[in-house]
Write a protein that binds this DNA or RNA. Sequence first.
DNA 1: TTTTACAATTGTAATAATTACAAAATTAAA
DNA 2: TTTAATTTTGTAATTATTACAATTGTAAAA
Lengths: 146, 146
Amino acid sequence: MQKIGQELIQHGIKPSLIRIKVYDYLKKDKDHPDAEKIFTALRKEIPTLSLTSVYNALKVLTKNKLIREIMIEEDEIRYDGFIEQHAHFKCIKCKKIFDVNLKYKNYLKFDELKKAKILDEHIYFIGICENCLNKEIVEHDRKNKR
Amino acid sequence: MQKIGQELIQHGIKPSLIRIKVYDYLKKDKDHPDAEKIFTALRKEIPTLSLTSVYNALKVLTKNKLIREIMIEEDEIRYDGFIEQHAHFKCIKCKKIFDVNLKYKNYLKFDELKKAKILDEHIYFIGICENCLNKEIVEHDRKNKR
DNA sequence: TTTTACAATTGTAATAATTACAAAATTAAA
DNA sequence: TTTAATTTTGTAATTATTACAATTGTAAAA
Ligand SMILES: [Mn+2]
Ligand SMILES: [Mn+2]
Ligand SMILES: [Zn+2]
Ligand SMILES: [Zn+2]
């Protein structure tokens, strides 16, 4: 908690309670939550919290590169408390976003971009996760009477 | 034109005029336009065209994998008439989206995703393109009286 | 040709996540 | 304490996309 405050300061962010709590929450919730989920969770601790404040905190944290916005489907921004380079997989059934380790990071250098300034990089997959695939099989079997 | 109709049929799409025109437009405009841009361009040929029809056509073409949606910034969907695997670079200054060739496609296989069904894959970079970088330098020099 | 059915197109209204903005509260400085 | 600056809140605005019902177009059936 104290540590998180320090981290914010080091990144040039004034460590207000809300900012600390939002960042702390993102470090704990590995599901890449959206603003609403963070808001709902933190409101239990901070009953006066507003959704706008969550958005404000997320914007500041993003701008100062403590967290990352993840845009996969167009109707929502998800947030990631971990900025180390990695990819994502989003399941269209359960909407979960999973981390995917990037083995060969060096292969993501492109001659075509040599003269451009790259600020951000995103790799993601969309599909159906193992768990939801299994559910589909069960459901299919049930319909066909075993 | 006739050819495009055939292509739609092969993908199970009834080749209406609007669908053909939208697809044809996407094959020609390499800037990854949004629905509005397509609409504005095609309205010159088809004065009765509605924006909804453009969206409808884009949805059908996307579902049947003739085109691709590109979501990079959360406030817009851009469309790509080319579905061969490739990456993108979006310039935050001029908003252009450039194609980036993927050299080592085989490195994008992940053990963690072996049991999942992957339907789609996206790689993109965000930054400032060469052209806009040069403009910035010129602007900077001008301010400092060269 | 006329009728009927179906699909495509249109126009308008609804949706909903995010942002804008101004007022209130909090914190820091003088 | 007084003042200024920043953060938080509540509400309203924004805006790209979607929903939906009415209209139009098409193509087969009678
Ligand atoms: Mn992640
Ligand atoms: Mn492309
Ligand atoms: Zn799933
Ligand atoms: Zn540019």
